[in-house]
Amino acid sequence: MIAASKRHVLLKRLLVYVPLLVLTAILLFPFFWMISTSFKPATDIFSKDPTFIPRDITLEHYRVLWTETQFPVFFKNSTIIALSTTVLTLGVGTFFAYGLSRFRFKGRRNFVTLLFLSQMFPLVLLIIPIYLVFIHLELVNTHLSLVISYCTFALPFSTLMLKSYFDGLPSELEEAALIDGCGPVGSIFRIVLPLSAPGIAAVGAFAFILSWQEFTFALTLTNTNEMRTLPVGISMMVGFREVLWGQLMAASVMVTLPVTVLFVYFQKYFVSGMTMGSVKG
């Protein structure tokens, strides 16, 4: 009897583990293959019988990438743009969200709905007038044009995330601060912001990731190698005749690295952020 029920439990375990392992392996394979290839010598990459784990490990692709290509320039551009976007989004978004969370004014409800709806606008339609405006302002092929664009697209989601964070903070805190002689502006800086620091940091990480990997705006608004960001720069490193997969995979690993670090650190917030929107919705 005991043996039978034990076997039953074991069978049930297997029925969960095996399919889950298979599905996870499929989901992870491209990521694994990218890392593995980036460390393989060219002879292994273009061999007729490839191995999953590199036979010999080489750092050659990374060395070439950092010393003989434009990659460092792309990396620098992406870093500058992503950091600037993060700072600007947080600056604008925090007050925006706080205003929407704490004050009742005309059109507030519609405004929140509009932020939701803006996720629906097709980017390829918006980008045409935006491009024409930037041409007019002579901002095409500058970091600034990308920072402004990314802020706009990071703003709706960041604001909604921050708003729900502020909604969760009891407003009695600020009322108490007001009684103690702290002005409304002071209470934001002294009470609200320090208390919501973890949430704000997570939203900042979100804005960074979004602008770090954005492709469409970067493709449209930059036109020289000196200004290109990582996603566009790397996409243009793909040759027509001969494709240097080792180098491309090394570049892919480098773009993925900062995103993964941020994600692992902020995972809890991201997962609750992305589920919150849909589950509450």
Binding site: L27, F31, W33, M249, Q267
Partner: peptide, 23 residues
């Protein structure tokens, strides 16, 4: 497992696309 399955979603599009194009 819950963390591992998120990998395709967090890998930047350019890196995911290039890996697939090679595969």
């Amino acid at each position: 497992f819950r963390s591992l399955i998120l990998v395709p979603w967090i890998v930047p599009t350019i890196a995911g696309v290039l890996s697939w194009r090679f595969i």
